[in-house]
Write a protein that binds this DNA or RNA. Structure first.
Lengths: 217, 217
DNA sequence: CGGGGGCTTGAGGCCACTCAACGATAGTGG
DNA sequence: CCACTATCGTTGAGTGGCCTCAAGCCCCCG
């Protein structure tokens, strides 16, 4: 039913017949936790503005970011009682959220709603599958190239994109260190494959997507 | 609906009302391909006996196994037109399969069936999420320890388990090389944490699950 | 304008990989 | 039944890609 937020028609259809879905907007400041791993999954979220990271921690602090959630993305949908990730706002972020309970209630009777849940879950699964290949078998350069192409696809407007996340976030997403991410970016910059538009190196323009695609395998 | 195969009641309920599901059994010899990546996903499968690996390949032959499917497991359920993995029989394997089409037909009207699809997809997603953490952030020893615990959980009977897959399969599952897997296994063997029961080192008994759990983080 | 955190760059180290050789195993055909 | 062989598994030596540690730079923001 949440998936329907990106398909207004279907959403209306789902929301009308029975319970009216409790539907609120909420704001989180930079680096604020939205929910924690193993906490009860009482709400499902959608990014209105900003960006969110979902990650798991090992006991000694090693972190693996499983996904970045950008504007329009749904996150926190676990189909289970508890969250399997911790979610934090990367920058000041607005989300809208609905109670899982009310969603379950609707889902009980509406096939279309459950199908939406299935579609969201399936695309999360597909992303995770692709990311396993990246983490298990790709080199540092290939990972960074793949990351740039993903961000390009998801947030380029007007020929460039502004990364909301830090180098540390990128590293923890790609299974690398900050230093390695830096070096590979620099490497690509030297080859004229990408350009930096801002002093803080977060605004990036891809100058040769073809070559990048080739590098990402 | 396929999930229901492990819950006979629900399956019967789902199957009765409308179309009778086309339902066949099939055999694959060791190392035979069951379906290929990007091929049309016309069937969904469940392992009756044997074991299956699902993997992705890079153009230069690097392979990442995303999951092993053991007796009872459902695989090939993509909720999409094409398969996202190649699936091969690890040993001689029997599967039963249903046409995706007929499943879709039933799913159109039956919430319970779609819920089953959602549940299967969700548990696949959870596995993939855990595996991303392993591939991105765990050491070789931690990966092997985690692998042993997973196999122990999934196929131990009578105090030990017999791995159907080769060292190469294990390596490609864990994002390591064959040699590293070997070395870490022997490392654990030397410490008295596990024992080999067969000459080919495929039958394993875990002697200290506690210590193993600690090593796997 | 001063402090702090993010980013970059270099030097050196280590974990896992590569390459190579050998042993063991199981499958094959005589 | 047994040699023969291909494949799998093990082990060692050496390498290299990425990590660690460290220092300096540059923003950004108070």
């Amino acid at each position: 039913m949440f998936a329907s937020l990106s398909r207004p028609d279907s959403f209306a259809k789902a929301a009308v017949p029975r319970t009216r879905v409790a539907f609120s907007e909420f704001r989180y400041r930079k680096d604020r936790e939205i929910f924690g791993e193993n906490e009860p999954a009482d709400y499902v979220y959608q990014v209105t503005t900003g960006a969110v990271r979902s990650y798991k921690l090992l006991s000694d602090g090693r972190r693996q970011i499983g996904a970045f959630h950008l504007v329009g993305d749904v996150f926190g949908l676990e189909n289970a009682a508890v969250h399997r990730f911790t979610a934090e706002a990367i920058v000041d972020t607005r989300v809208c959220l609905v109670k899982r309970e009310s969603m379950e209630l609707i889902a009980e009777n509406d096939v279309l709603v459950v199908r939406d849940l299935l579609n969201v879950t399936t695309s999360n699964l597909q992303h995770a599958e692709d990311h396993m290949l990246l983490l298990g078998r790709k080199t540092a350069l290939e990972r960074v190239a793949a990351f740039l192409l993903e961000m390009d696809r998801r947030l380029t407007q007007a020929g460039f994109f502004a990364l909301p996340m830090s180098r540390r976030d990128i590293a923890d997403y790609l299974g690398l260190t900050v230093e390695t991410v830096c070096r590979e970016l620099h490497h690509l910059h030297d080859q004229g494959i990408l350009g930096f538009l801002s002093p803080n190196q977060r605004q990036i323009v891809l100058l040769d997507r073809e070559k990048l695609a080739h590098l990402s395998l």
